[in-house]
Design a protein around this nucleic acid. Structure first.
Lengths: 139, 139
DNA sequence: CGGAATCCTCGATGATACTG
DNA sequence: CAGTATCATCGAGGATTCCG
């Protein structure tokens, strides 16, 4: 494919020729495994859409998440620098969550995947139907 | 999460003309949940890098995958139109897997996430270390 | 070689109850 | 309100065996 000299900064198209340090690749794989988690994705989107949000709000914004998983997801994301957690010493307690610039940048990176899903949803469903029909015919 | 036209600086380049049908959104969520699977991602990458590949080759290219998960992942991806499976009627059997254009487009969509992970790996690790240190100090 | 079928385990997740 | 702690479950996924 593109055999052009890599100027590390502006490479945004996949380049299979780019050399990859296996150690880095392992770390990248692990990081993606974490970040590509279902609840992380949905929480990320909720924060992208709503800005600063409180815990209970978030539990309503992320459809189907349990309180336990929300806490766990938020802690992980905080640990990885994707969001900030601000505790207000008031009563009743108030805790605000908001994305960091790093979190926003991840949201942007995933933007392509969301739009891909929207753009190709019909195509995927057609493929599924065709596959299932073939399977049924094979019986 | 959905019907909010405010927030003019949405990082996701949203087309205001496209309505966010909750049914569509649910389908998109489900599709992403499928496609953002760890093994799917790694298999996709292996196929991007190597073109047409046989089953046993793939099992070597995708580090740590079991035969069961490879078969399962390939079937799902085939069903969703991401790859083609060609069985050669020879002895010993030979089965070739290759991405479809749809599969390649998904690979491109994920490109941004891969590069994000590479670009921000150090930042994430620093955030983790800082978080862990804060937690340790709090004890 | 490229699977399918079976068994089994363990970790992710949910439900529930309690608390500062 | 925003969690923590504990217990229960359930199914994803590994190991193994068999087959065309």
């Amino acid at each position: 494919m593109s055999g052009r000299p890599a100027h590390a900064q502006d490479v945004r198209t996949y380049d299979p020729d780019r050399p990859v340090d296996p150690r880095v690749e392992a770390l990248v794989n692990e990081l993606i495994g974490r970040v590509a988690d279902k609840w992380t994705l949905l929480t990320l989107e909720a924060l992208e859409d709503n800005g600063t949000v409180r815990f209970t709000q978030l539990s309503r914004l992320v459809p189907g998440i349990s309180q336990k998983m929300l806490t766990q997801t938020l802690r992980q994301m905080e640990r990885e620098g994707l969001l900030t957690r601000k505790v207000h010493p008031v009563v009743p307690p108030r805790v605000d969550y908001a994305l960091t610039p790093l979190g926003h940048s991840l949201g942007e990176a995933f933007c392509g995947v969301w739009t891909w899903a929207e753009d190709h949803l019909a195509e995927v469903e057609a493929a599924r139907a065709a596959f299932d029909k073939r399977a049924a015919d094979a019986l």
